[in-house]
């Protein structure tokens, strides 16, 4: 059986309604290294997730209705297939210098590729995208110029509530919703 993103999505939907029931393998593995009460020297440890295999940076300058852009693609990881770089324009804009779509070929890790563009009549943001998509993996780097404002993060506020003691801890803040706010 092979897994697809779609399968994963479907699976995840199931996961969401899935159980917290647990397997009951109670073999009781002895002596976890960090049994509390041990006097083992703790290991200094900060572990990070892997970085993405490629990134894009774009710098630009606008003079009247002409935009000059310089895009730098930095590849740090192995890619599935040749990289295709493209520029996506707002309506009415035209590329006067540079390729709208260019096959960069195989770009090995540790490489940087720079491409310059001149765009006329760009009444909005221009997006540069680099893609490398294969059968079992895919990487996409994209950046907008001028830099798109970061999408507004939805920031719930936890309000003070009457303290509630549970598990020896005290919960004294919560996201509060009245019944009136709730859908029937």
């Amino acid at each position: 059986m092979r897994t697809s993103i779609m399968a994963a999505c479907l699976a995840l939907s199931f996961l969401l309604s899935c159980t917290a029931s647990s397997p009951t393998g109670t073999s009781g593995v002895p002596g976890g290294a960090a049994d509390r009460g041990d006097e083992l020297e703790p290991q200094a440890h900060v572990s990070h997730a892997a970085s993405l295999p490629m990134r894009l940076q774009v710098v630009g300058k606008r003079t009247g209705d002409v935009v000059e852009l310089s895009a730098v693609l930095t590849v740090s990881g192995r890619l599935a297939s040749p990289v295709v770089m493209s520029i996506e324009l707002p309506a009415g804009a035209v590329v006067e210098k540079g390729s709208v779509r260019e096959d960069l070929g195989t770009v090995p890790p540790g490489s940087e590729v720079r491409r310059d563009f001149v765009v006329r009549s760009a009444e909005g943001s221009v997006r540069v995208v680099a893609r490398s998509v294969g059968r079992s993996s895919g990487a996409t780097a994209r950046v907008e110029w001028p830099l798109a404002e970061e999408p507004p993060a939805v920031r719930p506020v936890l309000e003070p509530i009457s303290p509630v003691k549970v598990f020896g801890a005290t919960v004294n803040k919560a996201v509060v919703e009245s019944n009136e706010e709730r859908e029937p």
Binding site: R2, L52, M54, R55, S136, S137, G138, T140, R142, V143
Partner: peptide, 9 residues
């Protein structure tokens, strides 16, 4: 930017 891979492929 994004990345994905399938260990089973």
């Amino acid at each position: 930017s994004s990345f994905w891979l399938d260990y089973a492929e």
